[in-house]
Design a protein around this nucleic acid. Structure first.
Lengths: 139, 139
DNA sequence: TTCTTGACTTAGACAATGTCCAATGTAGGA
DNA sequence: TCCTACATTGGACATTGTCTAAGTCAAGAA
């Protein structure tokens, strides 16, 4: 993700301190923060950054395809910087922990053509739910 | 779904006008209303029904396994009465239309054991996204 | 049938998440 | 360095959902 800023500048992004900080917070492969968590972490480095800017920047990163938006629970959306590696998510029903997982087969292939009802299907997301080892041993 | 009320009574549910109306609104196999849509439709039959009761009743139906909660977009959750037939969802990215679809293979099988990280996986939901024929022809 | 009671419903306050806008600031090209 | 189009800010507002205290009622008991 270190070249993310370069890539963005190449697309005409104006590079501001706020955008840099948001991108830095998202740096890492297995991070799934909510917008508020991103804001809290960004605030540690740049105290005046506003909520609106964090929302704007996250939205832009999503539009640019650099970050994925994940909504696993109907609560706050989470932002996943691991957008360039196909993966799905495994969520603990108890504590909410999220893990990236990789599948054996392409889930698109599991949807037969007659079941596509003429849609041009372009995307699929799979969410597995269960109890994580930690929650399980504490139950 | 006509015997839903019987089933619920058998489980000790007190049968009220409000609950009956909510269940009637959800009657049908391919319905995916938000809580507010359920409330609007319920209000047509029972003008005094409150939002809180609609939320309570939907929550109870979900706990009882009679209705599925679906959150496809991070906005309002939708309620799917087709809980007794395994299925997944196909969503139009343009207009938000939702269709129930049936898969060729069990998506649980696509997650290799080493990718389960010790979770006891009990549930999987798959959401396909694309452009529906109607939106496609109008574009 | 009437009574009783605990479960149900209600209105509205509150909470969590996200969006919008007018005023102000600033990155980067000329 | 200066300009200006784009970015940021704070706060109001919108949407969705939760909670509570007070009133209401379904259904079993007598």
């Amino acid at each position: 993700m270190s070249d993310l800023l370069e890539r963005l500048r190449g697309r005409g992004w104006r590079l501001t301190a706020q955008r840099r900080v948001v991108a830095e917070v998202l740096d890492g492969d297995h991070v799934h923060y909510t917008a508020d968590e991103v804001h809290a972490r960004a605030t540690e480095r740049l105290p005046e950054i506003s909520r609106a800017t964090v929302y704007n920047t996250l939205g832009e990163l999503v539009s640019l395809g650099e970050v994925l938006e994940v909504s696993t629970d109907g609560r706050a959306k989470r932002y996943d910087p691991n957008a360039h590696h196909d993966h799905q998510h495994l969520v603990c029903s108890r504590c909410g922990t999220i893990r990236d997982v990789h599948l054996d087969s392409d889930p698109l292939a599991a949807l037969p053509v007659p079941e596509r009802f003429g849609f041009q299907v372009s995307e699929v997301s799979v969410t597995y739910r269960g109890i994580c080892p930690n929650c399980h041993s504490h139950s």
